[in-house]
Nucleic acid binder design. Structure first.
Lengths: 195, 195
DNA sequence: CATTTGTTTGACAAAAATGTTAAACAAAAT
DNA sequence: ATTTTGTTTAACATTTTTGTCAAACAAATG
């Protein structure tokens, strides 16, 4: 008989991603995940054998998703500025939905430096860095190591979302006030990085 | 008899901070901490009664340190540009030594939303935001909500350090190459935020 | 409709992490 | 030197988290 596909396996994985990436609960237990998914904890072992394997799978898919997003955005042949706007749109949207995704990835990498990580790397980075260099040479953006340009971009997009709990307190933001402020950033970031 | 102060209590706390803030091992156990400190795990309970209390204390001190750093930097009466340069110097240095400090803070906040957190807030933010506004009015920096200005600043400083494990792979950096690149950022950030 | 097979569940078992106790130890005080 | 008191340790106990198993269940198949 073929798999019945009740959707439970996917539900568990999606719930795990929500807890880790969206809620930032990096210490979540298998029970936490099962409860949040509304399923018996044993199912987690039925489908994934162990917590460790679930984590590895979540890790791998997040990594591949990230790489895919990067490649898609970078290889599109929009004019440079449109390309960057698209990049900001794609990654800011992702970061709003899953602010702690990269934090999870890094935490996992640091906590088991021994294990083999996903080998796949984004393929289009080199040519994209070259394209950035071209734009700098043309005087459209401030000259610097193109790597800095990209790191700046991601920093400006993601960090305010990761640090929301701290920044809200520091600057006395309400939840909705913070969301409004984040929404202003799409334009703002664009203005910052083009001279 | 007074406390003998063998330095063990401080050693445990410092080691915990190193593991959490510098090494980013957010899942470290009490045994991990004790081992890294070279002491018997029981001492952790002798001095702090529970892991939870140790974590709370580490959290509190990190929060107060952060607030103290902010206040010190913001209330200094250097001319604005020097003040910002000093801010970058202070916070980038801290971030190089303890890149995962804020990640730890946020993770703790998210994992026990119920517990009471440190009430103390930086006192000097309001006046500093006002000063930023003044500089914008004077045309020294690009006009925007001063909060954005500060968030941009911290994003550009801290995020590349948090994401080092990912960025290193993405951009094919060696460890020392990455350090060199980070060191370039002090100047770069300054150039980015002043027009 | 009975059987097969994949899914779900609860009860149980094992492992890991945290917490406790009493005794050993060492520095200071008497 | 002996006692006192704070520190450290090992052995043990508890709790939490993870993992296993067999039985119950339900959908597809013959």
């Amino acid at each position: 008989m073929a798999l019945r596909d009740t959707g439970t396996e996917q539900l568990i994985k999606d719930t795990a991603k929500r807890i880790f990436f969206a809620e930032g609960k990096l210490h979540a237990t298998t029970q936490d995940i099962a409860d949040a998914a509304g399923v018996n904890r044993t199912l987690l072992h039925y489908y994934f054998r162990s917590k460790d394997i679930l984590i590895q799978q979540v890790f791998k898919e997040a990594m591949q998703g990230l790489n895919a997003r990067l490649d898609t955005v970078m290889e599109s042949d929009l004019p440079f500025k449109k390309k960057i706007e698209n990049l900001i749109d794609v990654f800011l949207t992702e970061a709003v939905a899953f602010p702690y995704q990269e934090t999870f990835l890094v935490t996992e990498i640091l906590n088991d430096s021994c294990r083999i990580h996903d080998e796949s790397k984004p393929q289009k980075i080199k040519s994209f860095l070259a394209q950035i260099q071209t734009e700098m040479d043309a005087g459209h953006i401030k000259p610097m190591n193109p790597v800095h340009f990209l790191m700046n971009l991601f920093s400006l997009m993601v960090y305010p979302l990761i640090m929301a709990p701290l920044f809200k307190e520091m600057f006395n933001f309400s939840d909705s006030g913070y969301t409004d402020m984040i929404n202003e950033r799409k334009k703002l970031i664009c203005e910052m990085i083009f001279k």
